[in-house]
């Protein structure tokens, strides 16, 4: 039985036994290589489910939809390892109760997907630990190395050219499972921290703030990067900051549901070579 059929069966079982009230998965999208989210509420609706290598979006953000989990019923959700890490962060930041999340885990490459064994986020901790262990030697984006070699002036010019296209649509924020604040700092206007007009200064400020608020929380799922209508390479900033927190604080986002957020914790002997 293909993994898709296996999981369809599992979804039907979960729904008909009442173990979950809904399953969040994928269905066919507008083009052959696109998938869109599917919210399955009855066993019959499971027929629409698609699970293949084109299922790349991290769906965990739907779990923090207002009121979804407040009845204390469980919800099933299809997640890759990065999505499972998001669940851990959301749990560690008290945004959801991981006991209410039934994970239908899968992983794979651009050709095929395989099932991951487990049900609760903690069942996948060995997989996440091994991703962390291999993170330092994972191949880095060559463009990242290129940017790091530039002089500050060149880097400034590079990012200005990228950010100048930003239209402040905030799709990157909406698509990110970690951007759940009811009131984002860019929406606050007393004081107005960030210029709202999509001029270069405000664009730079917005992108710096977004990246800062996701430092040590981003799981690299790529939702933001794919959502950006003007193709700003947000993956580069995200990858850079993930590398920084790993190097400086040995912090890998989403290890467990009790992991302390990196910027809400400290060690007395954290490095401080730059402080005069």
């Amino acid at each position: 039985m293909s993994i898709q059929e296996q999981y369809k069966k599992r979804v039907r079982e979960l729904l008909s036994s009442g173990a979950v009230k809904m399953v969040i998965g994928y269905q066919a999208g507008t083009t052959a290589d696109r998938r869109r989210p599917l919210f399955i509420r009855t066993p019959e609706e499971a027929e629409k489910l698609v699970l293949d290598s084109a299922c790349i979006a991290n769906l965990s953000g739907y779990l923090v939809t207002e009121g979804l989990l407040s009845d204390e019923k469980s919800v099933g959700i299809f997640l890759r390892p990065d999505g499972i890490r998001s669940i851990n962060i959301l749990a560690a930041e008290a945004q959801l109760n991981p006991e209410q999340v039934v994970i239908l885990g899968f992983d794979g490459n651009d050709k095929e997907v395989t099932a991951l064994q487990g049900e609760k986020a903690r069942d996948f901790s060995a997989i996440i630990a091994s991703i962390k262990e291999h993170a330092p030697e994972a191949p880095r984006n060559p463009q990242l190395e290129q940017i790091e070699k530039m002089s500050p002036k060149e880097r400034f010019a590079f990012w200005q050219a990228e950010f100048s296209r930003c239209i402040k649509c905030y799709a990157c924020r909406q698509a990110c499972p970690m951007c759940y604040c009811r009131r984002c700092i860019v929406d606050s206007n007393q004081p107005q921290w960030v210029n709202t007009s999509s001029h270069t200064l405000g664009n730079l400020e917005w992108n710096v703030v977004r990246a800062f608020h996701l430092s040590g929380r981003c799981v690299g799922c790529g939702n933001c990067d794919r959502a950006c209508p003007v193709n700003i390479p947000l993956r580069l900033i995200n990858a850079k900051m993930a590398g920084e927190v790993l190097g400086a604080f040995d912090h890998f986002a989403g290890m467990s549901e009790t992991q302390e957020p990196v910027l809400a914790s400290f060690k007395k002997d954290d490095s401080e070579t730059f402080i005069l």
Partner: peptide, 29 residues
């Protein structure tokens, strides 16, 4: 100040990556 120190470490790396010269933003005790 321990919390601040972590925040500065991260923020400084971000400024550097976006090309803001670090000589213009200094930290001290």
């Amino acid at each position: 100040n321990y919390h601040a120190r972590r925040r500065w470490t991260v923020f400084r790396a971000l400024l550097e990556f976006t090309g803001i010269p670090l000589e213009r933003v200094k930290f001290s005790w």
